[in-house]
């Protein structure tokens, strides 16, 4: 059994758009998208002591190897990074093309996604990827059970919970409540360096330059502007008197 996990390398802290290029500013430190740590953890949980292979896959800049290495340190077996100047500026549709092509080569039984990318907040890339792979997709999974050749998922909608089943191979996107991701152990961190890590170009996975990056994207950013500030808000550090400060504030607002 093979489990592929799609993970994104995102800017650390609060992300910003570069006013010149109108793209995400990726010059600062990056980190493994925290929601994808849940997907990696779920793959490792499903693997347990079994002999499944867990492959982590990302499209991103060269530095995304840092995030992949973190996933390897958590316990994933192998990493694949699609990194190419021609991939930068890919929108959702272009990204789905690249990831689907890379996933096709893996032919995994289970493809996992995180709940959302903390920089893009799209929370739907999985559906575009599953469409290209022609696989069933189940999103917002709060609970995943593997039973023989099929998967059972509990997921929340606006109306309560649905329980959904599908035979493998299948694409599942997990919610951030599904588990508590482990921290990599020192042994895991040391071992990660020795695990196989491929970096592939678009050409190497059979993607034409016109299909990816800004060239392959069908949406565009036209203009940026600053939102109005929220006036009069206060923020304090608790120095032991925060409870009193809150009460004073509530009293001033006549809320108590």
């Amino acid at each position: 059994m093979k489990i592929a996990v799609c993970v994104k390398h995102v800017p650390e802290g609060s992300a910003r758009l570069d006013p010149g290029s109108m793209r995400l500013d990726r010059s600062g430190e990056g980190t493994l998208n925290r929601f994808d740590a849940n997907a990696v953890e779920e793959a490792l949980r499903i693997k347990g002591d079994g002999d499944a292979e867990v492959v982590v896959l990302s499209m991103g800049p060269e530095r995304a190897t840092e995030s992949l290495r973190k996933a390897l340190a958590m316990g994933a077996d192998r990493a694949v990074l699609i990194s190419d100047a021609g991939a930068s500026g890919s929108d959702l549709v272009a990204t789905s093309r690249v990831l689907a092509k890379a996933l096709e080569r893996e032919a995994a039984d289970l493809v996992l996604f995180g709940q959302q990318a903390s920089d893009g907040d799209g929370a739907m890339l999985w559906a575009a990827v599953a469409e290209r792979l022609r696989l069933p997709v189940i999103s917002q999974a709060a609970d995943v059970t593997l039973d023989g050749g099929s998967v059972r998922v509990k997921r929340q909608t606006e109306f309560g919970y649905d329980v959904i089943e599908a035979a493998l191979p299948v694409v599942v996107a997990v919610s951030d409540a599904i588990n508590e991701p482990r921290y990599p152990s020192l042994k895991g961190i040391m071992g990660a360096k020795k695990k196989p890590q491929d970096v592939l170009s678009l050409a190497e996975i059979g993607i034409d330059a016109a299909e990816a990056g800004a060239a392959g994207s069908l949406t565009e950013v036209l203009a940026l502007s600053a939102p109005p500030g929220r006036g009069g808000s206060q923020k304090i550090e608790d120095d032991g008197n925060a409870a009193q400060a809150i009460v004073d504030f509530l009293a001033e607002k006549r809320l108590i």
Partner: peptide, 23 residues
């Protein structure tokens, strides 16, 4: 936007090779 609509929109975007803007 809804749990259902988001997945339809993204699937449709891939099927039709169409641009999708969200939120």
């Amino acid at each position: 936007n809804s749990v259902l609509a988001a997945d339809i929109a993204a699937g449709l975007a891939a099927r039709l090779e169409a641009g999708l803007n969200w939120d």
